[in-house]
Amino acid sequence: MTVTREGRICSFCGEPGGPGTDLPLVGGLGAQVCARCVDDFHEMLHDEDLMAAARSAFPWESMTDAELLATLPMIMASAEQNTAFAHEWVDLLRTRQVSWAEIGRALGVSRQAAWERFARKSGDKGATA
């Protein structure tokens, strides 16, 4: 089981990136960030005026309803990407023979709850220890 960046989107701007694109992605824990967003954040962190503006208000406070609605699919795509990453991570653990009990313990749920959430997607039918 290999976890890749292929088919991922930037969790910040929503642009597709990764292998086969002109937009490199880096990150972890499901969140991915593109080089452009890294550059933008770097510029903001080193410019007092930009930092002051960023601290003063959240961007959504000045967005129109249409802008908020247009952003919602990107938010959902990022959430779905994180959910898919969690499934890939559990698949990786299962290929390493990590038990459902251990996975459940790490998630703070029972073995059965972990299996019910992740086994159907991974195709892993084994509910053993």
Rank of each mutant, 00 (worst) to 15 (best):
A129R: 14
I9K: 08
E116T: 13
M44C: 12
M76S: 13
G126K: 10
W89V: 11
Q97S: 13
L25I: 04
D91L: 05
F58N: 12
G123K: 07
K121D: 03
R105T: 14
L25N: 04
A57L: 10
A119L: 00
F12G: 00
N82H: 11
D39A: 13
M76I: 13
D39K: 11
V38T: 06
L92Y: 14
E48F: 13
E43A: 10
A79V: 05
S78F: 09
G17R: 04
W60L: 14
S78M: 10
V3N: 04
E67G: 04
A53N: 15
S11R: 00
Q32D: 12
V26A: 09
E67H: 05
G14N: 02
G18L: 02
L45K: 12
H87R: 06
L92M: 15
L45F: 14
F58W: 11
L68N: 10
G104Q: 04
E15L: 08
A101Q: 10
V33W: 02
R120M: 02
L93D: 01
M44V: 14
L107P: 01
S56G: 10
P24R: 10
E43V: 10
L29I: 08
A113M: 06
E67Q: 15
L93T: 00
M1F: 01
E88C: 00
A54G: 09
F58H: 12
V3S: 03
A66G: 06
T83W: 10
D22K: 13
L45S: 11
F85E: 00
D91Y: 04
H46N: 07
A31R: 02
R5F: 12
G17E: 01
A113W: 02
P24K: 08
G18N: 05
Q97N: 13
A113V: 12
D40H: 12
G27L: 02
S99M: 04
D47Q: 09
Q32Y: 06
S56F: 09
E116R: 12
A31C: 06
A70W: 03
A84Q: 11
A127Y: 15
C34V: 12
G104M: 01
A57C: 10
V38R: 04
D47E: 12
L29V: 09
S56Y: 11
A101K: 12
A35C: 08
W89R: 07
A106Y: 11
C34P: 00
M1E: 02
D91Q: 06
V33R: 05
W89C: 01
N82G: 06
D49S: 14
G126R: 12
G126S: 14
